[in-house]
């Protein structure tokens, strides 16, 4: 898998710092499962977090804090679960939401060739899966906010280029695009939007409203 499009470093930093909400974190973590380069960026950001923790002026714990923790050291703890090696095209962080089998998803049709599956919404930021048959796509639209799209299978193209498995497309409000699935296997991607899309035309507007885009 050769990944050409990565999330912006500010997105990776907000994941490492914990500022990113669950919907954004799901997209970043799923990309990280596929991209060693970005794993290193996040590891360096976390090291910066460690360094800030080291240098922060300490705040005294209560007098009985240590005794209180000591008294709990022998409590039985949940076993440490290590991820099993699974032959799955679903990145590990996404498995908690959809299981291991991407073919088993209960897709909700939108229009011919296009379906979606909502995952999680936090603070108005929506994460969903979108499945597009070759040639199908999302009607021309711009954005009120940012949109990040991680390709899981297949590929799609728009005016900005071609996006394949592992790639993350970042769009900003000024971009108008009409992403369309390329020939080949269906294009399944994880799309995260922080504001509704702005469609051109009456019908796409109506469909967009109905399906919460």
């Amino acid at each position: 898998m050769s990944i050409a499009h990565h999330p912006g470093e500010e997105l990776l930093l907000s994941y490492a710092s914990g500022a990113a909400n669950e919907a954004v974190a799901l997209l970043v973590a799923s990309h990280l499962a596929l991209c060693r380069q970005c794993r290193l960026v996040v590891a360096s950001s976390e090291a910066a977090g460690g360094s800030l923790l080291e240098d922060i002026p300490p705040v005294a714990m209560s007098a009985q804090a240590y005794q209180s923790v000591l008294s709990r050291l022998d409590e039985p703890a949940a076993a440490i679960v290590r991820s099993a090696h699974l032959d799955s095209s679903v990145p590990a962080p996404l498995r908690a939401y959809i299981g291991n089998d991407i073919d088993g998803i209960a897709w909700r049709p939108i229009v011919s060739g296009l379906a979606h599956y909502p995952l999680v919404t936090r603070d108005g930021v929506r994460a969903r899966l979108i499945r597009a048959e070759p040639g199908a796509g999302v009607a021309p639209h711009t954005h009120r906010g940012e949109e990040w799209t991680l390709v899981l299978t297949g590929s799609f193209s728009d005016v900005t280029g071609r996006y394949g498995p592992g790639d993350v497309q970042t769009t900003t409000p000024d971009i108008e695009h009409q992403p369309t699935a390329d020939p080949g296997p269906a294009c399944i991607n994880l799309a995260v939007t922080d504001a509704p899309l702005v469609f051109r035309g009456f019908l796409p507007k109506l469909v967009g409203k109905m399906f919460g885009f």
Binding site: A29, L32, A33, R36, R39, R82, S83, H85, L86, S88, A92, P93
Partner: peptide, 8 residues
């Protein structure tokens, strides 16, 4: 992510 996850 578990950094030791062999599926990475």
């Amino acid at each position: 992510l578990d950094p030791n996850d062999p599926s990475l």
